[in-house]
Design a protein around this nucleic acid. Structure first.
Lengths: 99, 99
DNA sequence: TTACTAGTTCGATGGAGATCGTACTACGAA
DNA sequence: TTCGTAGTACGATCTCCATCGAACTAGTAA
C-alpha cells in the first residue's frame, strides 16, 4: 500500500482542495462506481499518464483514496469509510450531485 | 442583493473549488457562526480588503453565499438551505470537521 | 458641501500547480 | 535474457489565481 495519511491525519482543507479540480472529481466519480477499486489506467481521462499519476498522488496524500499494488497494476479505492466518519455526508453530497 | 446563481445553476465543481481555499474556508466558518449574516469587514482574515472582496465574490458566484446591502455595509449569509438541498450533508460535513 | 467609512474594481505581480515529454522502475511473458 | 506493459519521477513550461496597492463608488455624518 502506498504512503497515505492515517484517518486522524486527514485535513479537510487538503480534501476540499483535492476535490476542487475537475479531473480529480472525475476520478472520484469513477472510483465511486468501482467499490472494489480500479486500475489508474482504466479511468478515462483527458490527460496524459504522468498527469494522471500526479492527480492520483494528490488524492492519495489528501487521504481521499488508497492505492495498493497488484503485479504491475495499481488499484485505487475510495476511502469511503474514513471520509464518511470524518465528514459525514460530504462524499455522498458530492456524488449525488452528478448531473 | 448582489448577482448570484439560482439554485439550479449551482455547479458542484464551482462549489468545491470555492471551498478548497483556506481563506474562503475561514469565511465559510465565520458565516456558519452567524445565521443572520455578517458584514465582510467583521470577519477576521489575514488579507487586505481587496483580497477579501475577491474571495467573497468567488463564493457568491459559486452559490455558496448571498450578499445584500445595508447602508454602506454588505451583509453575507450562507446559502445553507440551497446547499443542503443540492448536496445534503456536504456543508455539515465540512463544518463539523473543524478541529 | 466636505469628510469619513465600507466596500469594490482594476491592473500588476508572484507563486502555485496542471500539464507534458522523457527517462526511469517494476513486473510479467516469451 | 529480452521485450512489452503499467505506472512513477523529474524537469520544464505555461496558465491560473491569490495577493496587493491605488483608484473608485456609495452611503452617512457633520
Amino acid at each position: 500500500m502506498l504512503p497515505q495519511p492515517a484517518r486522524d491525519e486527514i485535513r479537510v482543507e487538503a480534501v476540499l482542495q483535492a476535490l476542487g479540480e475537475p479531473v480529480r472529481l472525475q476520478i472520484i466519480r469513477a472510483l465511486a462506481d468501482a467499490p472494489d477499486g480500479i486500475a489508474c489506467g482504466e479511468i478515462e481521462l483527458p490527460v496524459t499518464a504522468s498527469t494522471r499519476a500526479h492527480h492520483l498522488r494528490i488524492l492519495r496524500e489528501a487521504g481521499v483514496l488508497t492505492t495498493h499494488t497488484e503485479g504491475t497494476r495499481r488499484i485505487s479505492t475510495l476511502r469511503r469509510q474514513d471520509l464518511d466518519t470524518l465528514y459525514p455526508g460530504l462524499l455522498t453530497g458530492i456524488l449525488t450531485a452528478r448531473q
